[in-house]
């Protein structure tokens, strides 16, 4: 058992570091990304994860008519600007931030309620490194009281 002790201690330490990364992702969403919703009320939902360059994520949500929404998608400074698209059930791309200077937010309202899909991609950095970069990506929604 003694021979495993150094391994166990190392693993415990590394696990603690990993938990810190999660906590920092939470902090990033709460303290930085939420600021992008200024003027809107954050709905309170938490959608954030650590993604690596080249990775994609999708979010499905129903948006309701008559509500003003703001979508904010932010990536931590270790990542290049995050790409995102908003797509309807018929696969029409309604918004692509690559055509809007890589903006992190999009304000919209719907004439009728719809299920929409948000597709998020972490682009591969032009700078070459030994390992692909990873970082937090948060997707947040705000709305306005009518």
């Amino acid at each position: 058992m003694k021979k495993f002790l150094p391994h166990i201690l190392t693993l415990t330490l590394l696990l603690a570091i990993n938990l810190t990364a999660d906590a920092q992702c939470k902090g990033f969403a709460k303290k930085l990304c939420k600021l992008e919703l200024t003027g809107y009320i954050h709905d309170g939902n938490y959608h954030a994860a650590i993604l690596t360059e080249g990775e994609e994520a999708e979010l499905y949500k129903t948006f309701y008519s008559g509500q003003n929404y703001r979508l904010a998608i932010c990536g931590s400074e270790t990542l290049s600007a995050i790409e995102f698209q908003v797509v309807d059930a018929y696969k029409n791309v309604l918004f692509d931030n690559r055509q809007h200077n890589m903006t992190e937010t999009w304000d919209f309202m719907l004439e009728s309620s719809q299920q929409l899909k948000i597709v998020v991609k972490v682009p591969v950095s032009a700078q070459k490194s030994e390992y692909p970069n990873s970082g937090c990506v948060a997707i947040m929604f705000g709305f306005q009281e009518n």
Partner: peptide
């Protein structure tokens, strides 16, 4: 891919 499903939160539901 990483998939998120988002429901209306309690605050959005009330709204």
């Amino acid at each position: 891919k990483k998939i998120f499903y988002s429901l209306p939160s309690p605050l959005e539901t009330a709204m």
